[in-house]
Design a protein around this nucleic acid. Structure first.
Lengths: 340, 340
DNA sequence: GGGTTTTCTGTGAACGTACACAGATTAGGT
DNA sequence: ACCTAATCTGTGTACGTTCACAGAAAACCC
């Protein structure tokens, strides 16, 4: 009868040591290429590693080293973020680029339910990551408490959580909204409205605030349509509402590019030309901006840069450097295209 | 002089034991809520855990348990996938949903460079994950070899890697392309062309093959425009090429919804009406499909379902169940809207 | 050739947990 | 009151590394 070695155990550093006729210590030195190992020992060990198919066990390593060389990238509310938010991919890649350069493994953790929250909290607590980057749409995030309690090096991206000492990297939504609204006013529009979205989030509220800042005395509360989400369909609805309230409206600031695309659709339906009858500007400079006809004038959101800076912030903390208590705000250039 | 406990060491199970006046074993039983522990001990231990702020160390646990309760989700070529591929988010959420239900932590690993490939390979080797789901656009993926060598439970999603025994979950691109082309033919179109994209990938090549299958004798090689990527801009280019070759073209199968959106743009520019002059169908049923005017008739790709099945496949292997050697193909219903 | 430095190697302890085992206590049935 | 069974608890070992330390060997200098 033949015994089937259905699942052979993984080779350990000890197996390599006996195979090469040396001690564990010497093998360890070769694996982490430290000095003070003879040429003969080195070649023997390398051959042995190849022969037994040795790969170091990270769990054991991070247990004794007290670190994992990994940084978590937490995405909360993925339904809205992954499927609608065009920035998330850029942030992710920016963060990965920086972490990769320092040989940190980025692991993204998706939180999609209460169960996920608990599990991710356990994961973070368990020493599987040395730091964490959080992209959250929520003002108050239960995972924030866990991170604070663990004193885990962290960085928020997008906008800061309420009442949290954690550092963050973001953009100045209010100033950017003000800037692009002023630019729209300079085109000579007289009746400017806004489709404001996601007012329950900092970003949404700030964009509306920037809009009113820009209009000053000329602000007309009736020309603000409020919709729940940064989506195409909410853009359609919001624009329809504005047209009903003022058929002569000639300028619109949409809270996001997706909203702007929806507004464009509503205007087309209503027989208005853009930018002829109505000038419209968006926010994000996402892939939406070039998919519409005409292309959108919008505020560029430096997604990749946000990811990079967040990663640098976490790496800095890992190196023991003190980080600025205030958040970092990145520049948001205005991209002027054809829609206004 | 006051000593500042700048970074207090994390409490261990041993600290809890001392605090509660019991042994490590009993604490362990409480933490993993096993039976055979008295009510008094339990309350004392729970209080002690709270007091010293104990959180179990996963690295130590997975070292002794020889498993990590985590499954990797590898995304290769994120530039094209995250930013253009509308399916990735759905796959990710589907996989997470299933894994979450079994209390597995899903960790996504992004491969964006050679350096990343090596690091991810080390990460997988190191015992940080018990299994892996791979979403790759590449036919030949270096990470595949690593996984095979490690005998790590795995599942490919999208389409199978070449010459690999690893199980996969996907759709039948060829049959789906054939089906929707036939549906387009049934609308009475006489001169049907295709904007074929990404012919270096299985999906791209299969979609073209399905198209020629459907046309049979009526296939006209001149009416196939080949473009490199599944993108909007390539769609514009491809459609322009088709219009040049046959100005009377009245039906188009676009290799993806993004390509179809580009084609629509080109047709609008050329003054053709859709679906009046030209009928057009896409592939993916992505968010593009409802953003265009008119909405796209397309092949629905069950992204969420693909993720679910891939996760189930990996979980099955972890439970020791034998998996079907052949891949699993999911249904792809045709969604008929206004563009044809 | 003796002493000092440099290079190389092996050993034991530690990291924080789970688990098997043994021992102690309590409960249950005659 | 005794025996058996059930319940509860503590101890030692193992998981696979890294690191400090102690020696051994080689190299170098007067």
């Amino acid at each position: 009868m033949v015994t089937i070695p259905s699942r052979r155990k993984r080779a350990t550093i000890h197996d390599v040591a006996v195979e090469a006729g040396v001690s564990r210590g010497t093998v360890s030195r070769v694996v982490n290429d430290e000095p003070y190992v003879s040429a003969s020992a080195r070649t023997a060990i390398e051959a042995a590693i190849e022969k037994v198919g040795y790969v170091p066990n990270n769990a054991a390593r991070s247990l004794v080293m007290q670190r994992s060389e990994a940084v978590g990238f937490i995405v909360h509310e993925p339904h809205s973020l992954f499927l609608d938010d065009p920035n998330i991919g850029g942030i992710l890649l920016g963060a990965n680029t920086v972490l990769s350069r320092s040989d940190y493994q980025m692991v993204s953790l998706v939180i999609d339910s209460q169960r996920d929250t608990d599990r991710v909290a356990r994961y973070l607590s368990g020493g599987f990551v040395d730091g964490v980057i959080i992209v959250s749409a929520r003002r108050e995030d239960p995972i924030t408490r866990v991170i604070e309690k663990l004193r885990l090096p962290a960085a928020f991206v997008g906008h800061p959580p309420e009442q949290s000492p954690l550092p963050f990297v973001g953009i100045d939504n209010r100033a950017s909204a003000r800037a692009i609204t002023e630019r729209l006013m300079q085109t000579g529009r007289q009746r400017i409205g806004m489709v404001a979205a996601a007012l329950d989030r900092d970003s949404g509220a700030d964009r509306l605030a920037g809009f009113t800042d820009a209009l000053g005395d000329r602000f007309n509360p009736a020309l603000v349509a409020r919709v729940p989400l940064y989506t195409f369909t909410d853009g359609v609805k919001g624009m329809c509402a504005l047209l009903e309230r003022d058929p002569l409206i000639d300028g619109v600031f949409a809270a996001s590019d997706a909203v702007a695309a929806g507004a464009l659709e509503a205007l087309r339906h209503a027989g208005r030309s853009v930018p002829g009858d109505v000038g419209i500007v968006g926010f994000d400079d996402s892939s939406w901006a070039l998919r519409t006809q005409p292309h959108l004038s919008t505020v560029h959101q430096p997604a990749f840069g946000l990811g990079e800076r967040a990663a640098e912030c976490v790496l800095g903390q890992l190196r023991g450097e003190e980080q600025p208590a205030d958040g970092i705000l990145l520049e948001t250039p205005i991209i002027w295209r054809d829609s206004a």
